Amino acid sequence: MQSGVFTISLDFELHWGGFEKWELNDAKKEYFKNTRALIPSLLLGFQQFEVHVTWATVGLLMHKNKESLLAHVPERKPSYSNEQLSAYNFIQNAGSIGASEKSDPYHFADSLIRLIVDSKYQELASHSFAHYYCNEPGQTTEQFDADCKAICESASAYNSELKSLVFPRNQFNTNYLKVCKKNGIQIVRSNPVDWWWDTSEGTSKESLWKRLNRGADAYFNIGGKTSYGINAILKQEDVYLLPASRLLRPYNLKELFLNQKKINRIKAEMTIAAQNKEFYHLWWHPHNFGLYPEENMKGLNQILQHFRRLSDQYGMISLNMGEIAERLQTNTF
């Protein structure tokens, strides 16, 4: 490799990211409204610093109204043992959804997605159609295949062919890669190597100890090295597995100095990647910025500015997941 690579992938979900556990009360509505208001600023920042980003988007968001959404629902739906995990169960039984993006900005995002696809350096990608959980009991590969087809059809409204995928809740499942390839996916985000990122048994009943270790690693060096060389990008079922490096955790009013420690840790890891000509893959959910939007944007701007310094000093470049797959395929790294 001639230079280090910085990439960002975002899990764009709004309320679909936790419909089974988040009551859509006034506070949560404000949270998602803040999220939506920040997206144009995120896009401007990415363009200003020439940062290439993959927006892994839930397919249910890719619609102007309920009529369009329901028309794209697949016949085969996930048969989770826990029915509460199904977005279709939520639509039918748990309060339903509004008629359109105007009346329900928490479950529709057509206008924002059009802004994303019209923005330079940005990639529209799959986060499954219905926030599909690939490691939860009861569902099948055939149902996941139907979900993949539904989101591909939804993305065609934006003249987009989906090449990249992020598994919801990071429930990475190698048995589903053949289905990904069948539906045009060339690259997926895989999890960091540390044991607390293992999602093979699902995430609905994760232990507190696992969550505590995952959180502590954002601030203190208890995990493994986060940047990696090109040989760490494996290929299975003809799909590239691009490891995640670090979750950008949101600003926390209770953490005081730890907020800056978290940003400094990311910048230090980016520097190592640039110096060693390695990959560094940062990810988060746009809604993570919904509680303290101004403080979160300040932290992100530090990261983006640091990337520009590394670009000037070490020649570090930014690529989204689809662009990384293309270079791997053409051997142009």
Rank of each mutant, 00 (worst) to 15 (best):
K235T: 10
G224I: 10
S128P: 06
N65C: 04
P137A: 12
R246Y: 11
E278K: 12
N259E: 11
P78I: 06
F12V: 05
W22V: 12
G4N: 08
L208M: 13
V193S: 14
V51D: 05
Q313C: 08
N34Q: 10
C148Q: 09
G184K: 04
N183C: 06
D104Y: 05
A244M: 09
Y292V: 07
A56M: 10
N159K: 13
I324E: 03
E201T: 13
K277V: 06
K261N: 11
I39W: 03
Q305H: 11
N93M: 10
F129G: 02
N170R: 08
Q2K: 15
S164T: 12
I113K: 04
L112T: 00
N191R: 06
P40T: 08
W16Q: 04
E161Q: 13
G215P: 01
H107E: 01
A273S: 13
L291N: 07
I185E: 04
S204E: 14
N320I: 02
F32E: 02
G17D: 07
E278L: 08
N159Y: 05
V53F: 07
Y228R: 09
Q2S: 13
N296E: 14
T57L: 05
S79A: 14
D217A: 15
H306R: 10
I187M: 08
I303R: 05
I91S: 04
Q122S: 08
K267D: 05
L43M: 15
E13G: 07
S156D: 08
N135R: 13
Y219P: 02
D118C: 11
K181N: 14
L124D: 01
D26L: 11
L328Q: 06
E101F: 00
Q84A: 13
G17I: 08
Y219Q: 09
E295R: 15
L85D: 00
L319P: 02
P105V: 03
K64V: 01
L282S: 09
R36Q: 00
T57S: 12
S119D: 10
L165E: 00
N296C: 14
I113F: 02
